[in-house]
Design a binder for these strands. Sequence first.
DNA 1: CTGAAAGCGCTAACAG
DNA 2: CTGTTAGCGCTTTCAG
Lengths: 398, 398
Amino acid sequence: MTDDPRSAGAPTLEDVARAAGVSRATVSRVVNGVRNVDPVIQEAVRRAVSVTGYTPNRAARSLVTRRADAIALVVSGAGVEPETARADSGTGASAQGEGEEHRDGGGTGDGAGTGTRSGGRAFGKDEDSGGGSGSFTAQVFADPFFGRVVTGVVDYLRPRGMHPVLMFAETSRAREEVVAYLRQGRADGALVVSTHAEDPLPGLIADAGLAAVLYARPARPVPVSYVDLAHQDGARLAAEHLLDRGCRRIATISGPLDVPAGHARLTGFQDTMARHGHPYVPVVEGRFTQESGERAMERLLAEHPDLDGVFAANDLMALGACHVLREHGRSIPGDVAVVGFDDSSAALACRPPLTTVRQPVEGMAAEMTRLLLDRLARPDGPVTSVIFEPELVVRGSA
Amino acid sequence: MTDDPRSAGAPTLEDVARAAGVSRATVSRVVNGVRNVDPVIQEAVRRAVSVTGYTPNRAARSLVTRRADAIALVVSGAGVEPETARADSGTGASAQGEGEEHRDGGGTGDGAGTGTRSGGRAFGKDEDSGGGSGSFTAQVFADPFFGRVVTGVVDYLRPRGMHPVLMFAETSRAREEVVAYLRQGRADGALVVSTHAEDPLPGLIADAGLAAVLYARPARPVPVSYVDLAHQDGARLAAEHLLDRGCRRIATISGPLDVPAGHARLTGFQDTMARHGHPYVPVVEGRFTQESGERAMERLLAEHPDLDGVFAANDLMALGACHVLREHGRSIPGDVAVVGFDDSSAALACRPPLTTVRQPVEGMAAEMTRLLLDRLARPDGPVTSVIFEPELVVRGSA
DNA sequence: CTGAAAGCGCTAACAG
DNA sequence: CTGTTAGCGCTTTCAG
């Protein structure tokens, strides 16, 4: 029984109630915009609220409403798996193993103080630094893709007064943490962006009966909504464009084949090429990074010096390919036409700007968010998924 | 009095206590790792916890501990200011007016839904789309800088079991929301990255007595810790390098002069040049975007066709400058040497790779996070700030 | 339309 | 070392 009115802490409902001369219940009603409150009292309460500088305590509210009014945005992927060694889930079938270094520098994180100097190094082999430590987080943000996802999610959430909690889940430990986080009720649901197929997270979440929506269809079916792109159609657009402009010796730099999008873009491309009389298309597997695109292009050029068209499964690799082509004296699109995929910022960072297949990432992310919020509002609504159609954006490179 | 043991909801302390045959307090102690608990009972409790599948309810815990164990990562900037019209806070002093367009595209943000397709357009003039809608969020992520900040923050937070809530505050409305969010106790403190001087957010947060640490020193002094880079020193390194390699007709593309970093990098550069006998350096103001770098370079080239060295205040602009130089037949670094700033991913995306001044963003962000956590642990500890030293990274462009 | 009262699940004194 | 007892601040029946 603290009979003392002015305590140290932040003002509570009680304080406002006292100031307005009403009960806590009434203040609560006004604050939550419940009807059935006399306009006069309503006004009095409002005044009391601003006088006291009251702000509702979220923990208390959540405790009773059982809602956090927050959602998690989690990037899930293979990444470094300390315990599982390397989860190199068979680098697909057809392609060549690339032998890309997957290991990274220290990572800024862990230990004691970061000291005062910068974090890790890694990435470039010869060049040492390079604007990104090797952590999973850094790898994720190295691709403009993720920034676009965040943009779409945030722009959808903000007008609704919500903000995403950013989480990463590349190890089984981290995945457990995500599940725990949700189970603790810190977030009402999760938006998960998987960078690899076979990602166990969607399954874990579904098993725990937690709400989630995925970006990209999960490898093994899970009763969870998702948004995805018609990757094959996108690859078809690229193939047709290259063919239409007269290219006849076309090659492709695929994405990692253990990533559904990588796989789909390749098969979509191959299928279309085959249908147009090109059953064999030279392909080198990349890792969706600029550097892997460069290496792949070097290789393609070495094995097929006469090629006149290249489809890279994303813009970053296309950008790398362009660099290599130019270094080898090939003009773009004169000698070799190049088509990318995504229409990310890399497309405009390239000279000439890339002709590319647009993936409306922001819109897809917004839709994903809408689906999650829908589901939170109607927990037993149907599990619906949305597939977006890509479109060709013609610029200078092809 | 729910005498019924097995209710529908998630298991609570009570359930675990019953299962283990002890009191709630004891379970709480075990769960929170408090010593003074008989090892035997401890084991029994642990077993009960896993049997029941217990997960502590965060809201309940936060309600009593008064800690959210969460922090906000907020990007604050000018952005589109519906209410305040344009906050063009005097374009600095020394420099030349330039008349560079400072306004941006519409901004998806505010209004109702984002629709289902991607966000706005904007940015490119001729090319329309381009991997980034015009929202503040999109603009933020268009620069690799922010992804690096997130990386540094997340990598520091993760080992400590914390995750950042992402917020943007480019309008006064959004700023109020950030303050409200903190006051509601949803986050214990904020990491704020201001993209403009005169940002009122730090002041608002300080006035509200909330914990925060800033990236970059605030324009008007605020009793809040911050991390920053010795921008002037960085610019000096760039100037000296250009001079050392024999350049004599050097120009610079500055950042926005109303951004402290932009201003400091310019004055640092000018001072060093002056000290070496070059009191007048051609300068064109850019906006830290690739496109503005291109435009600035076009102009510089038109006015000073004989220049042999360029310092761009960030890598994105340096990249744009390189494109333009090459288009004008200038070889890099043969005809013109180019030095960038930041050592972001754009530095390696450039051909030749950029010689640049490294800003250890990830490390700075980690330090910023450490400072915040420190302060949360010791609320009345001293307000300390850390200034990082940049270093020159020599690559191919100069 | 408003107030009284009962908790939500957890931690933290305070006894034992 | 363990159990009892108060609440943390809010929403929400349930009466009036």
